[in-house]
Design a protein around this nucleic acid. Structure first.
Length: 480
RNA sequence: GUCAGGGUAGCUCAACGGCGGAGCAGGGCUUUCAUAAGGCCAAGGUUGUGGGUUCGAGUCCCACCCCUGACACCA
């Protein structure tokens, strides 16, 4: 049995899950289910990233213990499991003791490789906000909130990771693995970034200022900068370093991450793995963002789409369908309720749901004796084409096109019914053809819409050499 | 500002330099097995703008306009 490991990135617990993370985890779930159905043994990991300044600050602001605060948010992410019918096998929290031990061991290995050193770290500090500012937070070198106050520069000692040492090795690695990052344009982006020169990055924070992190081994005055610890989750979840067998069986794996994570996943983490003497990730798939009516989702605008709310209104598979079929896997996409409904009615109600309904109604009175029936060549070909297209598209993370291949089979089936008029002819061979098409549609759609596939499959009963069919209930009622 | 990618039907997207396509939405016809569903047909375009190369340009070149992303510590 082949082993397959796939993981999402870990969402940071300073906000409830939004549709963007739902996208990522559903994409990963589709691939996990696809591989499982193909017979692989699958580890599918997700979890929560719980350390760092933002969690610490927000916990303080809400007068909560950081761990209690993280617990509360981790629970919200776990709610997604039922809502979206996710099949992950592992849920790692970066505050799990085993993860923290792994992060520390990882640190020691990088240290042993001579890749961790203490250096002066310059911080820009806005006296007005009384906060550290990163360059990307500044406009024209000034705090946007207090543009007439000069920023202060504070120096402190931090541990740094010798990223620069890995520039050449990363470029060589990229050259040797042309499919390492999907899509291509993201791969080019990171290649160019690394080729342009990489600087060592800070991987610790002074504990007295920010205690909410994994303690740095051998130095009580520092905790790890959240990135360093969080990235290790991809292997700590596999039991590294203790569970060598599971680690060897499943690592390296496929990582799914958003475009904001490109550098961390495809360059920094890879350099860290090299430093620790571990194999690089197998592949990183970078998805785009879900925008709302062309604009970014933001709490202040109040346009955040809550995946749980959508599920309540339209059902799990309707939401999974939208994420897989209407979102461009590689680019940003817009969410609008209007398009969501249009797609639902066109593809799920009129398409898949109606097809299941008409085929099972036609087949319900017939008992098929398999020895007397053969699927027509034409139908066989249509099924084979659809299956092959679906498999190929999924291998390239083109979830939307994979579903299109299934929809084409449904379209073929609908035309086949109209053409053959089995309600007139009562031709058992034709009705059997249709049953087989429906059965295959269910199998192909299963990674995307597991509940729906199950509901269809349940209607088609196989008993020693015979097939009989029950009428399928309405799968997707039309919505106004 | 620099670099990269893009601008094609109302919407989402296809089109090795060779007659601009598909799905959805909207329109017409039609069927009754099916969820007011299905099928068929037609319509829908100055391919961002202006030049150039070419027998021929959505595609190549130049200029301009617009959009998106990256430009490091955003966890």
């Amino acid at each position: 049995m082949k082993k397959f490991y796939i993981t999402t990135s870990l969402p940071y617990v300073n906000a409830p899950p939004h549709i963007g993370f739902a996208l990522e985890i559903v994409q990963a779930d589709i691939l996990a289910r696809h591989r499982r159905l193909a017979g692989d043994e699958v580890v599918f990991n997700t979890g929560t990233d719980e350390h760092g300044l933002k969690v610490y600050r927000q916990a303080l602001a809400e007068k909560k213990d950081p761990q209690a605060y993280a617990d509360e948010y981790a629970k919200k992410f776990e709610l997604l499991k039922d809502a979206l019918n996710l099949s992950y096998t592992d849920f790692i929290r970066t505050t799990d003791p085993r993860h923290m031990r792994a992060a520390q061991e990882f640190w020691r290995r990088c240290e042993k490789s001579g890749d961790i050193e203490k250096k002066a770290y310059k911080i820009k500090y806005c006296v007005g906000c009384e906060l550290e500012k990163t360059d990307s937070e500044l406009t024209d070198g000034r705090c946007p909130v207090h543009p007439n106050l000069a920023l202060e520069t504070i120096e402190e000692e931090n541990y740094f990771f010798k990223f620069s040492k890995y520039q050449k090795k990363l470029l060589d690695f990229y050259d040797g693995h042309p499919d390492f990052v999907v899509p291509d344009f993201r791969f080019n982006e990171i290649r160019k970034f690394v080729a342009g020169g990489v600087n060592d990055f800070s991987i610790s924070r002074l504990k007295e200022k920010m205690p909410w992190g994994v303690p740095v081994p051998g130095d009580d005055s520092h905790v790890m900068y959240v990135w360093f610890d969080a990235l290790v989750n991809y292997i700590s979840t596999l039991g590294w370093p203790e569970d060598e067998k599971k680690f060897r069986d499943f690592w390296p794996g496929v990582q799914v991450a958003g475009k904001d994570n490109l550098r961390q996943q495809t360059a920094m983490w890879q350099a860290m793995l090299m430093s620790a003497g571990l194999p690089n990730s197998r592949q990183v798939f970078i998805h785009g963002f879900v925008n709302v009516a062309g604009g970014k989702m933001s709490k202040s605008v109040g346009n955040v789409v809550d995946p749980l709310e959508l599920v309540r209104a339209y059902g799990t598979d309707a939401v999974r369908f939208w994420l897989a079929r209407e979102v461009n896997p590689f680019e940003d996409s817009d969410f609008t309720l209007e398009r969501f409904k249009e797609s639902y009615n066109a593809n799920l109600a009129n398409g898949l749901g109606n097809f299941a309904s008409r085929v099972t109604a036609l087949a319900a009175d017939t008992e098929f004796v398999l020895s007397k029936l053969a699927v027509s060549k034409e139908v066989e070909q249509a099924i084979a084409d659809s299956r092959e297209a679906c498999r190929r598209k999924l291998a390239g993370f083109a979830f939307n096109e994979a579903i299109t291949a299934v929809l084409e089979l449904i379209r073929f089936g609908d035309a086949y019914v109209n053409e053959k008029k089995p309600w007139e002819t009562k031709d058992a061979a034709v009705i059997y053809d249709l049953t087989v098409i429906l059965d295959n549609v269910a199998a192909l759609i299963a990674p995307f819409l597991p509940k729906t596939a199950e509901a269809i499959t349940k209607c088609i009963r196989h008993t020693d050499g015979k097939v009989s069919v029950d009428r399928c209930p309405t799968l997707f009622p039309r919505i106004a």
